[in-house]
Structure formats: structure tokens, C-alpha cells
């Protein structure tokens, strides 16, 4: 069947899509923090981007679990994950500085967190991956030049805190992030 075309999320998704603790796929002991900025082709941070994350659970399971939004049936408020199931899904808008933060546990199986990038000005979202370490054999990483490969690997700032910037468009000084095609 012919697909429905994509359109930009525009500037006004902020009161509809983000939800409290959307970037807390997992918390507590053993959780790690991944954070960074989203930049445009002029090297400017993008304050109206939305990132979504999908990953396997720590044992490698890819089934996910419902309850990411979990609602209060009394008043409709978002209670969020109850912390027992690993839902595998996170959603974070960038702040006024173009910055985002994710808290989760490392996935089992394939060593990456899948990311979908949405933004005002971006007409079709983009897929990329956060590889938590670079010293792995991986069918995608192994096909990339060292410069391109580096854009997919998070850098450790200190134990438990990883940095991962996303450049929707490269500029003279910065390599563009590798984006993926799953068609």
C-alpha cells in the first residue's frame, strides 16, 4: 500500500507529546545517564526538537512493555512507569538550550539505543543510534569510515555519564551525524 507522507512536528508539539519523566526509562542503581545537544547546520542548538528512544531490556528482550505513560484513571494525570517493567521507550524534548537527558540501563544484545529525531523544520524524522561503546564489532559500525563511525559512539564524561551530540546537518568544523534508512 502507498504510505502516508510525513510532515514536520512543527513548533507546537510541546504541550502534546512530551510527558513527565519521559526520559527516565530506568532510574536508580545501575542506571546510566546519556545526554547531549541537538545542532543545526549553522552549529546552533535546536530548542524545538523531540527525541524518542527505543531499546532492548538489559537481558536483551525486545518486547517492551506497556505503561510508559500510565495514567491516573481518576484525573487523567500521567503517573508514568511504575518501575517494575522495562518499557524500553523514552521521549525527551530538547530544552531552550537544545539539550536533552536520558536515564536508562544498558541494553542487552545489540550494543545501542535506537533514536528517532523530530524537530520543527525537519519534514521527516531521522533515525540514528547511540552506541554506548566504540570497541565493538557491529554490522553497521564496521561499514563506516572512522569519522562517520565516531558520530554514533557516545563518549564517557565520567563513570555512568555519557555524552552524545546529534548534528542534523554538518558544518565546516563538525561531521554530520550518521542517519539510517530502514525502508
Amino acid at each position: 500500500m502507498n504510505p502516508t507522507p510525513s510532515q514536520t512536528v512543527g513548533p507546537f508539539f510541546g504541550y502534546a507529546l512530551p510527558f513527565p519523566r519521559g526520559g527516565e526509562i530506568a532510574a536508580g542503581a545501575g542506571a546510566l545517564t546519556v545526554h547531549g545537544h541537538v545542532f543545526d547546520g549553522a552549529g546552533q542548538p535546536i530548542p524545538d526538537a523531540l527525541l524518542e528512544f527505543w531499546q532492548a531490556d538489559p537481558a536483551g528482550g525486545r518486547g517492551g512493555a506497556p505503561g510508559t505513560l500510565r495514567r491516573d484513571p481518576v484525573n487523567g494525570a500521567i503517573l508514568g512507569r511504575h518501575g517494575l517493567d522495562f518499557t524500553g521507550f523514552g521521549r525527551v524534548p530538547t530544552d531552550a538550550d537544545g539539550h536533552w537527558t536520558l536515564r536508562t540501563r544498558p541494553p542487552g544484545g545489540r550494543p545501542y539505543i535506537a533514536v528517532a529525531v523530530f524537530a520543527r523544520g525537519l519534514l521527516h524524522h531521522l533515525y540514528t543510534r547511540i552506541y554506548l561503546r566504540g570497541d565493538v564489532a557491529d554490522p553497521l559500525l564496521d561499514r563506516l569510515t572512522p569519522e562517520r563511525r565516531r558520530t554514533l559512539v557516545a563518549t564517557e564524561e565520567r563513570p555512568g555519564v555519557l555524552r552524545f551530540d546529534i548534528r542534523i546537518q554538518g558544518d565546516e568544523e563538525h561531521e554530520e551525524t550518521v542517519f539510517l534508512d530502514f525502508s
Partner: peptide
């Protein structure tokens, strides 16, 4: 969209 689209081709996963 001018500064917010990739210039490199997408990489087939």
C-alpha cells in the same frame, strides 16, 4: 528546513 536536513545520504541499516 534549510539548516535542518542532513546533506549526507542515509546509511542503509
Amino acid at each position: 528546513s534549510i539548516l535542518r536536513h542532513p546533506k549526507q545520504p542515509l546509511v542503509v541499516a
